[in-house]
Design a protein around this nucleic acid. Structure first.
Lengths: 364, 364
DNA sequence: TCCACACCTGATACCGGTACCACATTGGGG
DNA sequence: CCCCAATGTGGTACCGGTATCAGGTGTGGA
């Protein structure tokens, strides 16, 4: 042991230590080109002795490959994105890639900045759950691609943007959930959360096109809700959809409002976690009992949902798998080089978990 | 617009486009050295025109600064670590740093590998929630530091390791929570979860030293539990602590066992999320009603806890703040250069949220 | 009128790697 | 015995930046 080495040794240091030329040391350490057995051992021993670790940055500058992926999400503290990030991270680590994760707080300007950071740091690919609602707002994504960086969208496909995307079928999941409620006998089903509507729609027409044809989760879930109503021949009632800010407080207020209607809903479909907790607060305040006077279905299963009294029926999203699949698609694109095939929309299955929060409507 | 540039333009391209020397272009773009107003404008315009973006990797090789932090946690999908990661990410973004996040799945070997990756990628600092239980197992952390990378521990301080750490006072939080139960009149309080005990301790002595003097969360929480018993003059009963695997299933089984005791607990202190849900399952199966026949306190508040029936008393951990503080301490170390002060243990406050799951014991 | 100096620019060496290629050696076959 | 190929090594250009410095130009003061 040649004592402490505070400065990080370089290839030249190893070469000197081993008594060989710089390029010979580089060749053995880098694993390219030729080196005799004897020299190889001497170099390896020298590297070990002085604690040499290759500078990955310098290598990347030279090779043009950084072995790093970029991930852009709204909020890492959100367990959904945490799961996706973990899925990506695990899948990419297997291939020797690491992940640079940037949070945008659902702000498009921050997303653009994040994209630039990733371009500057020369990541080999980008996975993004974009806040862009349409292709026109996704110039930064086009730019990343045109500078040669493969991009895969996750969770949210941007309509009109011709890029691989890995999503769940929010529309079908919502349709199935609502159909489940209808099958239990419900006719008046509240929709809590959704695409941000500034004001109450006056008729169903006002909702046509809201988030339509786009894969953005909220819009899709609303469409699925409408699909189910159509399938079952149920009337749409504008009073049964939430409007305004997407906060737990507003969800609570909106559900409270619905409970005051002449003909209140007998079931609620909550499209997100905070929509569910807000609804539960409103129900508790109104003395409405879940599974008896009110049926409930929520999105994003959690270990809590199963221990609620009664346990809540939930739609489970495969977050890990979503991330793993996104990474897989990204690597396929990277491997394919520029001659990639046509972009695909990869849809993963959700799982409906039936629990006791859904029961026939309480007809008194 | 000089059409599409699929290849990424370099400083030389800008120089050519602007009709100046490479170094002049570099000087203006890099913001160092001199350049006349007229040339500056020409260079900036040229850069804009061909869409030049500096290669951050090349810059890092030259300057030795990567403007990247490394974060090592057990599992990004765990909301606790998600929150910490988000806190770090937000704080570091403000200073123009990005974060490389690696998950180790609570495996020390993976943690060592992750550390090496970060060293190789020349991050400017590392924040780690280490799986190492003692300084002897933290050679990789020492190694990172000796190669000049500042390190800050988060969530878990490694005993004997002389490094800055940002943690919560798990011991005090646990003590206070248990004291709260005692104040409500409870004398038999179950401890669910804890440091993995292979077999049932036979007497209290067996627990002395388990996780003692170390900041590792489980050990600290157990000590806090014992502290509270001592403070309140309560007897310790080995039957009231959970043993075996730290899984939701086992927590359920252990609580079920405790309920069968001749003198079952009247309250439970759950040190983690899965411990709480496991406990709730056991209680439901046994027909025990929370807040009536059984009082409950859990760790890690969640929006679900507030909407449970009854709402659950919880200890809230400041996850975002934990991350933000860790980043702050790390930056202070980075700014201080090699001449850093003595390592400190930074302790953040938890918050006890009293809800209806704690009530006086039901004496029939 | 000439020199000093401020102003401005390009050349050049470097960071720590990759990768190619030219140039010894050595040895075997014709 | 000589030549050529295989074997092994170091030199060198390059990746895309940073940073210093030499030197050319223009202006004002002596």
């Amino acid at each position: 042991m040649t004592s402490e080495h505070s400065a990080r040794p370089t290839i030249s240091d190893v070469a000197a230590e081993a008594g060989v030329g710089r390029s010979t040391a580089a060749r053995t350490l880098g694993g390219y080109g030729y080196a005799s057995e004897e020299v190889r051992e001497r170099v390896l021993a020298a590297a070990e002795r002085i604690g040499y670790r290759a500078n990955a940055l310098a290598r990347s500058v030279s090779t043009g490959v950084s072995h790093t992926l970029g991930l852009i999400v709204a909020d890492l503290a959100n367990p959904f994105f945490g799961g996706v990030a973990r899925g990506i991270s695990d899948a990419s680590r297997e291939r020797g890639f690491d992940t640079l994760v940037l949070s945008t707080h659902e702000d498009l300007a921050e997303e653009v900045a994040a994209t630039n950071v990733l371009i500057d740091k020369r990541v080999d690919g980008i996975i993004v759950a974009s806040a862009a609602l349409e292709a026109g707002a996704a110039g930064h994504i086009e730019q990343a691609r045109s500078s040669g960086i493969p991009v895969v969208l996750v969770d949210r496909a941007v309509p009109g943007l011709d890029i691989d995307a890995v999503v769940i079928d929010n529309r079908a999941a919502a349709r199935d959930a609502v159909a489940h409620l209808v099958a239990a006998g419900h006719r008046r089903i509240g929709f809590v959360w959704g695409p941000p509507l500034a004001e109450r729609p006056r008729r169903r027409r006002d909702l046509v096109g809201v988030g339509t044809g786009n894969q953005w989760t909220d819009g899709e879930r609303l469409q699925g809700y409408l699909d189910a109503l159509d399938d079952e021949g149920l009337a749409f009632d504008v009073e049964l959809v939430m409007v305004g800010a997407k906060t737990e407080e507003n969800a609570q207020a909106e559900v409270a409002r619905m409970l005051e209607l002449p003909e209140p809903p007998t079931a609620l479909f909550c499209t997100e976690n905070d929509a569910m907790t807000g609804s539960l607060r409103a129900l508790r305040n109104a003395g409405s009992r879940v599974g008896e006077t009110m049926s409930l279905i929520g999105f994003d299963d959690s270990s809590w949902a199963a221990v609620m009294e009664p346990p809540l029926s939930m739609i489970e999203q495969p977050t890990l798998a979503l991330g793993a699949k996104a990474a897989e698609v990204l690597f396929a694109t990277i491997d394919a080089g520029s001659r990639g095939g046509a972009p695909e929309l990869h849809t993963l299955e959700t799982r409906f978990i039936a629990r006791a929060s859904v029961a026939p409507p309480n007809v008194n």
